[in-house]
Design a protein around this nucleic acid. Structure first.
Lengths: 341, 341
DNA sequence: CTGAAAGCGCTAACAT
DNA sequence: ATGTTAGCGCTTTCAG
């Protein structure tokens, strides 16, 4: 018994309620300027017919879609190995939902997809876009700006010219890193190593900057570039230990890396935190709390970041002006102390 | 210099190419039945004007949206603590993209959202839906069926009456569990415990069934219900150890749980696998490979599940008939041996 | 093979 | 306060 009859239209509701289409439209869209008894009649007709507005028809005239695209450009599997994006998405989804907007997810894999995404965005299917552009050389942001769609970026875009008028939301990676390293230093540690993330990502680069800011010009052998993964961090940790057997602390660019470091440290017989103190970044609960010992780490509120991105975008869409001062919103981080440092 | 000029329409392209709108439309949609020289002219005009079809206008007449909704109903944070959905999404996204369909993500939190989702689906914004309904008592599937949108479920829906004509894709949870337990038994283990997942989820229930199928009527104290989280599994493992100090193996319902069990085992001085062999489920790489010792586990190809779900749905949408034999597609699992058993 | 014309379902002036 | 009407941009018969 598949409901073959196509869904009722405004017309049908109007007929049933004995009013004009315009009146029904008014009621459906808030009912301002329609007298109570009529509103009631129309409401009932809508109810009885199970009327739901046809979004395509509506968009055609309003040019509004009440939908925003979330573009996640991350070919690497890493994205899917930590809950980062999931949390971010959750925050975005909540905010969008609260404002009756739909979330269109655009995942890209590789270059060809960029063109596709750009086309989609240019096609005016959505009112705006939330874009995660993590790599320095990513062509996507440029394409998107070209598409002329209001956009908010997740994470500071890695363009050399800081002058582009972009809106972005980021954590205070640098400040968080400073705090982490200062904690370590305050603990009396002097040979503090750093396992970085991929340095073509601004988050990783900024954390390294923060580390350097407090360490000054220290032994360059104490810094090794890695990739935010436990495996990469294990290699990095081994190298660090080989280079500087006397290191007494390590600041890992994220919790996943910290967990890898922890493993190598244990395997090499170093006690944590007695011999080597460890601090991570993210406060990714399942990792940070479950690691052994539990991780002292820099927390960033990822879900909140998502929420704020959405809020910013929605605001820009509302007042259809570009009066919003472009620039970044940088969210504070907080140090969470557990057993590893 | 914001591009205020609204985007070019079919009309504009037609004018520029010196043909009618109908011809342009034909060319844009594949160009069948239009002579080569004209096709060429139109193509050029499209190019020059940067024309992109207005999807709303198109949908209004075709009643097609080339978009499918992915509904993930999981209020719990667990979803975001393991990469399960991310992987699934990736598979879905790949398949959808390959067929020029958009992915509209609907995340739900709590009851109110159900109505919202139902309304959205009923509103005909999308051509179909991919739904993850994990709980036995979830009202969502019912609502969705009511909305009359072609749907494919992820995971076997937990309805008591197995007769509803639903299409779903699932892993062979029961078979995988059997394999895991058989391995353990083959290793000479006789007191094999099971840490389950939340039993109101079919995946957890099916794994328990598989366990029971090979264990027969064994000591009920060897089974404890848990929740797929490391923390929950730790509690479960402690209880198990208290109840049956002589257990010699544990089959955990997922890798996250297995990692929790491992931790308790270590803490209690049990060697793995010598004293207690451990098998997980999922083969969630970051967990399974990084745990200590690396986890022997039952692998399910999650991304592939997503891909197949999308493929099934797309096929149903193509032939607009319900000729597709409803029912489940059950994907095989494979045992991956590492050090823990 | 190509063009003319009729809507798809809705909103937004503009009348009344 | 309510109704009338003119499109939004596209596809799709139907003629030619």
């Amino acid at each position: 018994m598949t409901e073959t009859a196509s869904r009722p239209t405004l017309e049908a509701v109007a007929a049933r309620a004995g009013v004009s289409r315009a009146t029904v439209s008014r009621v459906v869209n808030g009912g301002d300027g329609v007298r109570e008894p009529l509103v009631e009649r129309v409401r009932r007709a809508v109810e009885e017919l199970g009327y739901v507005p046809n979004q395509a028809a509506r968009s055609l005239v309003t040019k509004r879609h009440d939908a925003v695209a979330v573009v996640i450009a991350e070919p690497e599997t890493r994205v899917f190995a930590d809950p980062f994006f999931a949390l971010q998405l959750r925050g975005i989804s909540k905010e969008l939902t609260a404002h009756d907007n739909q979330l269109v997810l655009l995942l890209t894999e590789g270059r060809d997809d960029h063109a596709r995404v750009a086309r989609y965005l240019a096609g005016g299917h959505v009112d705006g876009a939330l874009v995660f552009s993590l790599h320095l050389d990513d062509p996507l942001p440029g394409l998107i700006q070209g598409a002329g769609v209001p956009t908010v970026f997740g994470g500071r875009p890695g363009w050399s010219d800081g002058t582009r008028d972009v809106v972005y939301v980021d954590s205070d990676n640098r400040g968080g890193a400073r705090e982490a390293v200062r904690l370590l230093a305050g603990l009396g540690r002097t040979r503090i190593a750093h396992i970085t993330g991929p340095l073509d990502q601004t988050s990783a680069a900024d954390r390294l900057d923060g580390y350097r800011e407090v360490m000054g010009e220290n032994d360059p052998r104490l810094v090794v570039e890695s990739d935010f993964t436990p495996g990469g961090a294990e290699r990095a940790m081994r190298e660090l230990l080989d280079r500087c057997p006397d290191l007494d602390a390590v600041f890992a660019a994220n919790d996943l890396a910290a967990s890898g470091a922890l493993r190598v440290l244990r395997e090499r017989g170093r006690r944590v935190p007695e011999d080597v103190a460890v601090v991570g970044f993210d406060d990714m609960l399942p990792v940070a709390e479950q690691s052994d010992p539990p991780l002292t780490t820099v927390r960033q509120d990822i879900e909140e970041m998502g929420r704020i991105m959405a809020r910013l975008l929605l605001r820009r869409l509302d007042r259809r002006v570009a009066d919003e001062a472009p620039g970044g919103v940088v969210l504070p981080t907080t140090l969470v102390r557990r057993a590893s440092a």
